[in-house]
Design a protein around this nucleic acid. Structure first.
Lengths: 136, 136
DNA sequence: CAATATCGTACTAGTAATAGTTACGATTAG
DNA sequence: CTAATCGTAACTATTACTAGTACGATATTG
């Protein structure tokens, strides 16, 4: 599978959007991400459901940031994408009635959920305003 | 990408192997995993490099468990597969010189490595003897 | 109302990792 | 020598994501 880069990419875009008033079109954003406007609409569409951005159609339309950067965390973005397990690792399903397989799956599931919880804790601590360049 | 189930599957197999003296053929093990002997050879081959199992060719050959269950952890198995990142999530690489993208990638990388460390800590605590059915 | 900009979305193609399969060579017991 | 068994290369299937094409829906402007 190719990797899911949506979180890093959209965080990048939202910070840039905060530099300008008004809207940014999918086309403009696509240029920033070196991709295609449709990809942008899909990603931004997910964020719209969470109320982090809004969109307007027609001339002078585009995407608008609806919340200040400090009120948006990586966890907010991550969850907006309605993600499944973030792991490439999964339990097995060869002999669901075998007690040994079940014990192995239980042990692995616990490790996966502990790591997922840790991941989400880390994401929750990152707000978008932390990505702003320092005015040193 | 389809999910990686090797860890759970091989843990299951090693426990069953400990129930019998001597060797188990790839064919026998394949039946346990509901798959094909070649898949078994690939998976077991990785464990052989770590010294957890050995193989013998020719009649009466097969795979032999080389260490007691309590001396094999999930982390040992996991590492034997020489895994890349266990996450489906990755950083972006659209504008490597953009300071905002770099900041976003740094923040995400940290979250990923914290979660990976937690995952490995959890795996290290699971020894295969913990998967044995309780004699209640 | 016509022209145009812009989002919305269905559909298809590309990509990368594991899983599965076939085929065949290498080794060893008897 | 024969048969059992591993070793491995090559190919296909599956899965889940990214990317791209096409076209419809909507809103502004004059």
């Amino acid at each position: 599978m190719s990797k899911d880069t949506r979180l890093a990419r959209v965080a990048h875009v939202l910070v840039h959007m905060s530099f300008n008033e008004g809207t940014a079109t999918s086309e403009t954003i696509a240029a920033m991400l070196d991709t295609n406007p449709v990809v942008v609409r899909r990603i931004m569409g997910a964020l719209r459901k969470g109320g982090y951005v809004s969109s307007e159609r027609g001339p002078n339309g585009g995407w608008r940031l609806e919340r200040p950067l400090r009120e948006i965390t990586f966890l907010n973005i991550y969850r907006a994408f309605d993600p499944g397990s973030p792991f490439t690792i999964a339990t097995s399903d060869d002999h669901p009635k075998c007690v040994v397989e079940r014990a192995a799956n239980r042990a692995l599931s616990l490790a996966l959920s502990e790591a997922t919880a840790r991941f989400e804790q880390s994401l929750a601590k990152i707000t978008l305003d932390q990505l702003l360049p320092r005015k040193s």
